[in-house]
Design a binder for these strands. Structure first.
Lengths: 342, 342
DNA sequence: TTGTAAGCGTTATCAC
DNA sequence: GTGATAACGCTTACAA
């Protein structure tokens, strides 16, 4: 508690007074590339340190027009996949002097709009969005922020000048999963979907169909059942599947959460995995290795995707907005991780 | 894309010009309780809406001295427990017009200090911290922010005027877990610790010992083994435990992550759970119900704890700093959730 | 190399 | 009820 707990905020002017210079000299001395007498610069710096000075971001932002802040919009941070991506974003942001404003939407349009309005008010320099469904209406709202936007695992249906994407190659990943199952000899394979209208779900489903057709099989509508991206959806999906006249011997799930719920339901219904039913997920969330049996899945480089998204955003933010040399959307590859569920 | 995508930011002055009033009238009209002619207020409001006006938080913050922003410092958002708490914080914050700045420290002191410096610069109005270990040095740094701080699941060793806590009753929770095990007839019960020096770990361990002693048993140092709060720590702990001359028949784990790793190791070592070994965790993370066997655990009201912490912070922030009617630290009770691992 | 002055978008204090 | 005017803390021409 000793000293240092000065009640009053110390400003650049206070330092100027204490160092016997003008406040603009202080500003220059504390800045990077500006020309100041090395001697006075050192003096000013030490005075600043002594007085416990911290620049006021708001004041700086007001004049520079840049906040060194980015917004991150997620459906819910309680989704393990999202959390890992955000960690990648946050780490990279901090390494480059950017601050992250987190905004959960719960997928509710109202909250999403409110969140964007708040970010607009905060004058964020960029935006990273991983909310599950990016409606056209919402994207329009986002575009009006006038700042670069990077979407993670979402298709950029409407190609604005400002929005870019980082996505896992869902088609490739889906093929990896299906080929693995097919190679294991499975012929009746089901697919459990994710949340409706999510582009990554549609692509994974597309790969599912294509893999089947490539083997001369036709996909049966009966074997594609709806999930929601959460364990309960997987549990219900299995119940539906087992009620079919001819249940599948394997199931490819939209994501690990779905697969994990399905695994548990299988256990309760005394369906041996992988003996009676093989299951593969998508994401490779950290707990996938700890369920029983450990889950075979398509690993997404989550942390790296966050880093990549933030890296793109950094580029977009420093690039002169007029220089519209369109960066290319980034696609990363998933990796098949074989564990014991197949 | 139509209209509306005005390149230039529209300010209060632009509205004033368009509405034929002074900028201060606009400010009043847009504000809540100020007296303005109802007619002009409506006119101004509609002009503002039409022009797509959004107030500049930085400018406002500069003059009011409040940023309507709070900082949330976590060790890692990839911890499911943390993520759920943060969700509670974020939801409540947004409901009250506050923005959340997220800062991950990775438990590295350097990053933690850097994070605090950044928050200081951003002039956050308050801080919520769930980083695992709050060293005295760090707390000192935090205190110098001069804003209220709420610690989650951390003891407030150093009682500053500004720091309060929200904690689960670790002792009670630990007793719940132990009593459950004891009632099931277990006599050789082990405890797997969490990260070193974490107050919640020490309290849970304290409860472990007390429960044993209350039954006239002495606790054996051999049965308390070190974990780290993550699955691998649990796995290693079980290996250590099974190497003892007389292994335990039950184990109480610092948290669910630890328990889940231990469960997996048990499976691999062909140790039947709960038959040969009962295990109970702490936290009730969402996946606890999905491992095999579903984990018996002490549920913490994570979301509510986040809400509570944010609620306290809201109080502290609006309360005149001088009015030091010390709010009391909040302690919430855990709940025993019996599943199949015991 | 340094100081003076203007201005970023608000709110707040005065007069009128 | 409304309009000047002065801050808030900073960066950035422009002068000296």
């Amino acid at each position: 508690m000793v000293a240092g707990k000065s009640e009053a905020r110390v400003s650049i002017k206070d330092i100027a007074r204490a160092a016997g210079v003008s406040h603009s000299t202080v500003s220059r001395a504390l800045g990077e590339g500006m020309l100041v007498n090395p001697a006075t610069r050192e003096r000013i710096k030490s005075v600043a340190l002594e007085m416990g000075y911290t620049p006021d971001a708001a004041a700086r932002s007001l004049v520079t027009g840049r906040s060194r802040t980015i917004g991150v919009v997620v459906a819910t941070i309680a989704d393990p996949f999202v959390a890992e991506v955000v960690q990648g974003v946050e780490t990279t942001a901090h390494d480059h002097g950017y601050t992250v404003v987190l905004s959960g939407s719960g997928s509710e349009p109202v909250r999403e709009i409110a969140a964007v309005e708040m970010l607009r008010s905060k004058r964020v320099d960029g935006l990273i969005v991983t909310a599950s469904r990016i409606g056209a209406l919402y994207l329009d709202h986002v575009e009006r922020l006038g700042v670069p936007v990077v979407l993670i695992n979402n298709h950029n249906e409407q190609s604005g000048h400002y929005t870019y994407t980082v996505t896992v190659d869902n088609h490739h990943g889906g093929l990896l999963a299906m080929d693995h199952l097919l190679e294991k000899g499975h012929r009746r394979i089901a697919y459990v979907t994710g949340p409706a209208d999510h582009s990554s779900d549609m692509e994974r489903l597309g790969a599912y169909r294509q893999a089947l057709e490539a083997r001369g099989q036709t996909w049966e509508a009966d074997l594609v059942v709806g999930g929601d991206g959460w364990p309960d959806g997987g549990r219900r999906a299995l119940e539906t599947l087992m009620a079919r006249t001819q249940p599948p011997t394997a199931v490819f799930c939209y994501n690990d959460m779905t697969a994990i719920g399905l695994l548990r339901a299988a256990h309760e219904m005394a369906i041996r995995v992988p003996g009676a039913m093989a299951v593969v997920g998508f994401d490779d969330i950290s707990l996938a290795a700890y369920v029983d049996p450990p889950l075979t899945t398509i690993a997404q480089p989550k942390f790296e995707m966050g880093q990549l998204a933030m890296g793109m955003l950094l580029n977009l933010m420093q690039t002169d907005a007029s220089m519209t040399a369109r960066l290319s959307d980034q696609v990363v590859q998933g990796r098949l991780v074989v564990r014991d569920s197949t």
